[in-house]
Computed example of a mutant assay.
Amino acid sequence: MSAMDPLVLSRVIKDVLHPFTSTIPLRITYNNRLLMAGVELKPSEVVSKPRIDVGGNDMRVFYTLVLVDPDAPSPSNPSLREYLHWMVTDIPETTDISFGQELIIYEKPEPRSGIHRMVFVLFRQLGRGTVFAPDMRHNFDCRSFARQHHLGIAAATYFNCQREAGSGGRRFPPQGH
């Protein structure tokens, strides 16, 4: 991954995931608006779960999708990192997530303070029925979840979300501090 990749610049690679190479197209749309990495969406724009299409051409290959907030409850004190907003498993390649099993129902993002990165991760499963829901939504960990269920990262993206009245961009400390 290049240093200019949005996942690197936003520190999703580091805080949530190890570097990876995307292996499958992932198309996410909220209210018919295509999600581009790093776009800002208000809570009112993400009330309903998005449409998600998985590319590829082999319906015998299955994926798990998670949506996590590594900045919960606030970016300055992410004590609930990574808060799990959604989990769908057993999604066949070439389909949309409605063909998968929703194990953790979609909980709309509602940040109270600061700008939160909302991270979608698509994992390739070893086979159907090999992934199970965690006991809790808070302190989910994508890396250990992937290890536990023998998952490989197939694709990832994210959007920024802050309370309706919020404004301003995400700020990062200079590298090396």
Rank of each mutant, 00 (worst) to 15 (best):
I91N: 03
R33T: 10
L122Q: 04
R171Q: 14
M118K: 10
S74L: 03
S79N: 12
M59H: 14
V47M: 12
T130M: 12
A155F: 01
D71P: 01
F123L: 01
L35A: 07
P70M: 03
S22N: 07
F99S: 12
H85N: 13
P25I: 07
H149E: 01
I105C: 02
V68K: 01
G166F: 10
E102Q: 15
N160M: 14
V12A: 00
I153Y: 01
R143H: 02
N32F: 05
F132A: 06
F159G: 00
H18V: 07
N31C: 01
H138S: 08
P109S: 14
R171C: 09
A133Q: 14
M1N: 11
V66C: 11
I153D: 02
T21K: 15
E93H: 06
S113L: 10
I52T: 13
S144Q: 15
S79F: 13
Y63Q: 05
K108Y: 11
V54E: 08
D53N: 12
R117F: 00
E93N: 05
P109G: 05
K42L: 15
V66W: 03
G114W: 06
P19N: 12
P174D: 13
L34V: 12
H116N: 05
A156N: 05
L41F: 05
L35N: 09
T21A: 14
F120W: 13
E45W: 02
C142Q: 00
P75S: 04
H149P: 04
S167K: 13
D53I: 09
P73K: 06
F20S: 10
L35W: 11
N160T: 14
K49E: 12
C161T: 11
I91T: 02
I24N: 09
V131K: 11
V66F: 02
L65H: 01
P174W: 06
N139Y: 03
L9F: 00
V8H: 06
I28S: 06
G176C: 12
D15M: 08
G56S: 09
Y83M: 15
F145K: 07
A165D: 14
P75I: 02
M87K: 10
I105E: 15
T130V: 08
K108I: 07
C161H: 04
A155M: 06
T23C: 06
G55T: 09
S98T: 15
F123R: 04
A37H: 03
Y158T: 08
T21N: 13
D53T: 13
